[in-house]
Design a binder for these strands. Structure first.
Lengths: 340, 340
DNA sequence: AATGCATGTGAGATCGATCTCACATGGTTT
DNA sequence: AAACCATGTGAGATCGATCTCACATGCATT
């Protein structure tokens, strides 16, 4: 039958000392006699005592768990980050709670509230929205360690880890322009999302710098799923004068575009050139392989977790904003456009 | 400054009642006067009261969190499952803690212990090892709801959700035999792992049934990562008389094999035929598309979560073993082998 | 002899929510 | 009038770990 796990009281009783003394012996603080300490440890061993982390947390006001609110764990980008955070957390004897906001502000807020009522102090969040971030503001006010990841939010002063989205997008577009393209399409998701906005802005500034006037007909918007991206790509390439090149803002949309092109009988890079943001393992399996703007994924989660644990272990440095560079990985999905 | 969140005591004081009455009003049990109840709710509202879930859990002995111990969240198979569980958990106002065992028994054990000391009751585990599962036995003895996923373990009587690995493997091999192949390679991971063992057994029984004697030189073992699978594939195909077809036991190994073949200049399906276990989005992006044994991934996590919540909500039905069928998706990576 | 101090130990309070129990009311039944 | 009950409320215990405080010792100072 289910015998309850041993409590400190049990250990104390077994060792014939008070709870206070048992606690002192096990946590080694204050004065404890050698012999007493031995007895207590023996008793703890014998009874298989493991402290109740819940009671400890209630007492000292925080639970050694990291709350991690991401867009979606199924996105390999976030899965990788979650994995890296978990590995580091384990070193600090923290656990990891993962929640998906599914890009809904409301869900992000309620998830956060629910975690806060668990006395969790320490969050890594990929914020959905750029506005109405009262929940994040409150965290800051209450001095709860918070690291924003992948996206920053105006008005929130805290640690963050993002990549140079604008620069990455600019590199991609400059490359396409250099290869002779002028009608360059953009497949992006909701501009509510920070990364999408920044990548759009890089796209526009590179076009302008290249003497090309941005044209709304070259831009298609969809949710960030493969299915929605297929539709958006088809819409974009069903125009009378479709783009000769396409830039997609994340890997799911890149996959959608690939499928759409296949369905439409459009061949890469012969009929159209393609550059995607975010490298993904599929990109090197296709023929031709896909040229992408790569983010240092392995460093993002690690950096975020490091920042968080700095704060959690009491170092109160001013907020750090880490921004990683991106890299254009030229593979085979872009062809030179004959002039004219 | 960090003003502490309001406690029940604060609410009670604000409403001029005792803690007990406030609790009764907020949780609506026992007798409470209408007017009193109104006052309490008003006070709770005004102070932004949210129960401390930690204290609640300490009191009633369980925390509304599901512990989920998987091999690795980065494996899309597990990522999908984790996502599905989280969605269902949210409905029940549970959170989800994810831990990776990284296929180490020791890590699985310590993770579980750490979660148990959080008074978590309710686990979904993909057990690493077939033996020494004392930690799981203890859960059962203590009546802690437990659902095994992807793998079952002998001697542990509890709910489980797995797929028909042996049958799936058999289908794949039978298909290859029907296409005229006789030297059929197997790329598998550690036989400590349940799925690997079952798939091996399906491979062997199909061969035998087809009049082919299993040959150890046709089998290569590696860890389940793309990198290790590349090496293992190269080893397998560097023999004097290499296989004419290959069966890989999971999607990461299928990817490794693809990369190895490319590096070795081996073309699919001309030089070698390939069937993988577990469908993955990349499989339809390659040329040719990869023939796979597909598992109903979307149902696995859901079924597991459902079983778990049945137990958590007090229904004490006998342990259910759910086993899903697999499906051979014939695409283009297998060619008919000329007789002789 | 009186004081100081280092060393050990236990009783009880605390964290926040909840539950049991006892104690009030006022009204209804015998 | 006595007994009973439905209704409403508060005091205090409980969950388990930890911390403060008070109280012992015994030894070393003045």
């Amino acid at each position: 039958m289910a015998q309850k796990p041993a409590t400190l009281k049990d250990v104390a009783a077994y060792a014939n000392v008070s709870r206070a003394t048992a606690a002192r012996a096990l946590n080694s603080y204050g004065y404890v006699g050698d012999e007493t300490a031995r007895k207590v440890h023996e008793a703890a061993e014998k009874l298989g005592y493991r402290g109740n982390r819940l009671a400890q947390a209630l007492r000292n006001g925080q639970l050694p768990i990291i709350g991690c609110i991401l867009g979606d764990i199924q996105n390999p980008f976030f899965a990788r980050i979650a994995h890296d955070i978990e590995v580091l957390a384990r070193k600090y004897r923290y656990n990891l709670i993962i929640g998906s906001s599914e890009e809904e502000l409301e869900q992000e807020v309620s998830l956060l509230a629910s975690l806060q009522s668990l006395s969790i102090r320490g969050f890594i969040v990929a914020p959905t929205s750029d506005e109405n971030n009262f929940h994040l503001e409150r965290l800051i006010e209450e001095n709860v360690p918070l690291v924003l990841i992948d996206r920053v939010v105006k008005g929130i002063e805290c640690d963050s880890v993002v990549v140079d989205n604008e620069g990455g997008a600019r590199k991609a577009i400059e490359y396409l322009i250099a290869m002779g393209h002028r009608r360059i399409g953009l497949l992006q998701d909701d501009t509510r999302i920070f990364t999408s906005r920044e990548r759009l802005s890089g796209y526009q500034s590179a076009l302008t710098a290249g003497g090309i006037t941005p044209d709304d007909r070259m831009i298609s918007v969809s949710q960030s799923t493969v299915e929605h991206a297929i539709d958006a790509t088809i819409r974009l390439f069903s125009q009378k004068t479709p783009p000769t090149a396409l830039f997609t803002v994340d890997s799911l949309m890149t996959q959608g575009a690939l499928l759409a092109f296949r369905a439409m009988g459009i061949s890469i890079p012969h009929d159209v050139s393609l550059v995607g943001f975010d490298d993904f393992n599929l990109a090197t399996f296709t023929d031709p392989q896909i040229t992408v703007v790569a983010q240092p994924v392995s460093e993002i989660g690690l950096a975020a977790a490091r920042l968080l644990f700095e704060k959690l272990t009491g170092q109160s440095s001013p907020p750090q904003q880490i921004r990683f560079e991106t890299k254009l990985l030229i593979r085979g999905s872009v062809s030179r456009r004959p002039e004219g």
